[in-house]
Design a protein around this nucleic acid. Structure first.
Length: 429
RNA sequence: UCCCCAGUAGCUCAACGGCAGAGCGUUCGGCUGUUAACCGGAAUGUUGUAAGUUCGAAUCUUACCUGGGGAGCCA
């Protein structure tokens, strides 16, 4: 059996293809069957004079998404979108499909989401899934090639990493457990064993957010590095993004074309990335008339977009006020009002894709911060152990996969960036 | 959680107080090169649910349900 991507190597040969009927047109004694097999789409031409009567008859009665096998000769033909087509000599139905609900016409979001399991078969969704897979592979390759060890963080956790309000509670025998919202604290433990680590898996946030940038279940890659301080942390995050984007540009030309993505904008994503401090971001906002934003305010979606519009690459915003960030971030020794953190904002209004920081590594300081934030000391005992036994400077960050996919694919909403999205009001299919 | 918008044929929508409609899809027929093909015939409805106003409600009012867009929060 031959896959559709490979047909160019079989020019003039008789081959057998298997797949699903994507669309069909006919013209008297000709039937044009668009066959897809997951690797591509090819036009199969059934000419009445070339096949037995019953095959021509059957070809005229198969519905969209019927699974079929076809045998025929691969021919070069410029009238076909692929440049090749299959001249059919034999055809058989594997399983009929009647009234497939998603026709090649426009549909509303609600209907498509309700039929997500079938929507995945469309050319756009196939392209997005392939780009997502390419990004995941590139991200893993980036870390694996640089001496990182992939370590898996637990999904059940006994407590909050960043806050208590946004966690999903689950019954855990006689106790309550929570679904993880970040693997970071566990990576901080693992990094003291392995030096450079990363985890890559789903995380869960019970935020009641209804925006184009939010999912309740999303995938995050979280590297953590020992002996790495703020400056290097920032460089690695930038390098990772540039590497992942260029990997898609090189390997996913066909998919980017299906999505009608402006590839020149992606090709321009090269190092170095622009870098500003939180203080400078506030100045940029004031310069654009947003005088309502004052120092100490967090930057929301609108503010991020406004700042990022000044640049055509991802922009790094660093050194936020301590009051805006979680307890574990290390303070800037040169200015205790600031933490050594960074957010990376994607261009074209896609928002924050990376958040990270150097971690506080001093036991006494960290104990003070936990108390200051009103957190339960006992819960963080094991985390404090990491500062008790051979603490070292270390840093890390988290990168949200779906937002990266949305930006690279040029999609309006993250719900198309994951096979089966979980949203505040949607748990199925 | 708050604010705004929308639910009519399988889908996308029209009808906006007076006969329930179109395109696509489906189905039947036509065409030897179609590119979301085209041409002709046919079938398809508890107008989201419940109540109210009215001679008369898809249309106006109220509540609820479902979905969409945005805010806050975040990756």
């Amino acid at each position: 059996m031959v896959r559709i991507t490979e047909v160019a190597q079989h020019l003039g040969e008789t081959v057998r293809l298997q797949g699903w009927l994507y669309n069909k047109r006919s013209s008297g004694k000709l039937q044009f069957l668009q066959l897809r097999d997951g690797s591509g789409v090819i036009q199969c031409v059934v000419f009445k004079g070339d096949v037995p009567e019953f095959i021509f008859e059957e070809a005229g009665h198969i519905g969209q998404e019927t699974s079929v096998w076809v045998e025929g000769t691969i021919k070069e033909d410029t009238r076909s979108a692929l440049g090749f087509e299959l001249s059919v000599s034999q055809l058989g139905v594997i399983s009929h499909a009647y009234d497939f609900p998603i026709s090649p016409k426009e549909h509303g979001v609600a209907f498509l989401m309700e039929n997500r399991h079938l929507w995945l078969r469309s050319a756009r969704q196939v392209a997005i899934l392939k780009i997502r897979a390419t990004l995941m592979k590139a991200i893993r390759q980036y870390f694996d090639d640089r001496g990182f060890t992939n370590v898996d963080a637990p999904i059940f956790t006994p407590n909050a990493c960043e806050g208590t309000s946004n966690l999903f509670e689950v019954e855990y025998f006689e106790k309550t457990a929570y679904l993880t919202q970040s693997g970071q604290l566990y990576m901080e433990a693992a990094v003291m064993a392995l030096g450079k680590v990363y985890c890559f898996g789903p995380v869960f946030r019970a935020e009641k957010s209804k925006t184009r940038r939010h999912l309740t279940e999303f995938w995050m890659v979280e590297p953590e590095m020992a002996f790495v301080e703020h400056e290097e942390n920032l460089q690695i995050a930038s390098e990772l993004i540039a590497f992942a984007v260029q990997s898609v540009v090189q390997n996913c030309q066909a998919e980017l074309t299906v999505l009608e993505r402006d590839v020149a904008k992606l090709e321009a994503i090269t190092l170095p990335f622009p870098r500003i401090t939180y203080d400078e971001a506030i100045k940029i906002l004031h310069h654009h008339g947003r005088t309502d934003v004052v120092w100490g305010d967090d930057l929301g979606g609108d503010e991020e977009t406004l700042v990022s519009q000044a640049f055509d690459k991802p922009v790094i915003i660093e050194k936020y006020p301590v009051t805006l960030k979680p307890f574990y971030m290390k303070r800037n020794p040169e200015n205790p009002q600031q933490v050594l953190n960074m957010d990376i904002i994607a261009p074209e209004g896609y928002g924050e894709i990376v958040g990270g920081s150097q971690r506080e590594d001093d036991l006494a300081v960290l104990e003070g911060l936990i108390a200051e934030h009103g957190l339960d000391d006992a819960v963080f005992r094991w985390y404090l152990d990491l500062r008790t036994y051979g603490s070292v400077p270390h840093s890390g960050f988290g990168l949200g996969l779906e937002r990266l996919v949305a930006w690279i694919c040029g999609l309006h909403h993250v719900r198309e960036c994951i096979p089966f999205p979980r949203l505040m009001d949607r748990l199925s299919p």
